[in-house]
């Protein structure tokens, strides 16, 4: 699983025999794609750094002449004169949502993975795929009963209901990741623990948990990114603007025509930043999470 993480040779060795024109083509193609992937970044960053007087749709691609954080200020704090609601509140709402949702799912997923990997119980071979099916379903198919149920137990409209929702629908993928992770741990280790007299939790605490750190990082990053970026549940289950997560608030900001688009761009950057930071620092684990199953759409 460290295939992706393997770094290329630190020193590039020149082609041994002769100059290869294909390499120019390779770099040209790679650079072309680099432009494609960075095009939105260019427009996001340059626009959000422009002063209000410079923001002009007819000159979208010009570089800012100065350096202005006004767009970010308005996107974050809001602006009364322009009737812009800032993203600050929803940014913190998202953390209030993501942290518990991530931690709880990871812990439960880890225990589930342990059971499935090391305590094969009757019917597990049928139940496991049935659990996994839950991570692929379109959530529209459960949305109406879900909203009704949360409402009946007074968890509709606030973050608690959304946390519960993300924990439950995050379980299949987290269980899968941990199950596969623990499956790689030699059964002899567990065996040895048992001979030492350790019980179910003893084996987990003393043998599996201490070596679970990479697994936890993968799951935490995965779940953090998925929950932070999620929109369908967020807009359907938390309609009260004072507890909305950031994706809903960003859509709200960008959905109104009269909000200047430089503010929308700054808002988009703010909303993208936390998962991007995780990606930049922990891309190795991020990729593992991706490859472990699917991307939640």
């Amino acid at each position: 699983m460290s295939a992706i993480a393997t770094n290329p040779p630190a020193v590039y060795t020149a082609p041994p025999r002769r100059f290869n024109p294909w390499r120019i083509v390779i770099y040209a193609v790679l650079l072309m794609f680099t432009v494609f992937y960075l095009l939105p970044v260019y427009i996001l960053v340059t626009t959000s750094l422009k002063a209000y007087t410079e923001v002009n749709l007819s000159h979208m691609w010009t570089l800012p002449t100065g350096f202005s954080l006004d767009s970010f200020r308005d996107a974050w704090f809001g602006s009364e004169s322009q009737s812009i609601t800032g993203l600050a509140g929803s940014f913190f709402n998202s953390f209030e949502l993501v942290i518990p949702a991530t931690l709880i799912t990871a812990i439960i997923g880890s225990l589930n993975g342990y059971v499935l990997a090391k305590w094969q119980f009757p019917g597990a071979n049928i139940i496991f795929p049935l659990i996994l099916y839950g991570m692929f379903i379109p959530y529209q198919a459960i949305l109406i009963p879900l909203t009704r149920t949360l409402s009946a137990i007074h968890l509709y409209g606030n973050l608690y209901g959304l946390i519960l929702t993300h924990v439950i629908y995050g379980l299949p993928i987290c269980t899968l990741i941990f199950r596969n992770y623990y499956a790689g741990v030699p059964t002899e280790l567990v065996e040895a623990g048992r001979i030492d007299g350790a019980g179910f939790f003893g084996i987990y605490r003393h043998i599996l948990f201490p070596i679970s750190v990479p697994g936890f990082i993968v799951v935490l990053i995965w779940q953090f990114t998925a929950v932070w970026n999620e929109f369908l549940f967020a807009i359907n289950l938390v309609s009260n603007p004072s507890s909305q997560p950031i994706t809903v608030a960003l859509q709200n900001l960008a959905g109104s025509y009269s909000v200047q688009w430089n503010v929308q761009m700054a808002g988009a950057i703010i909303a993208a930043l936390p998962p991007l930071i995780l990606y930049i620092f922990l891309s190795r684990y991020f990729v593992r999470g991706l490859l472990a199953g699917s991307v939640k759409g």
């Binding site: 209030e96 942290i99 990082i217 620092f281 922990l282």
Partner: peptide, 17 residues
């Protein structure tokens, strides 16, 4: 070190929130 960084990242906003 990565773990520490991750936990700091996660805790900071919690305080603010």
């Amino acid at each position: 070190n990565i773990l520490t960084l991750a936990s700091i990242l996660m805790l900071l906003p919690l305080l603010a929130a």
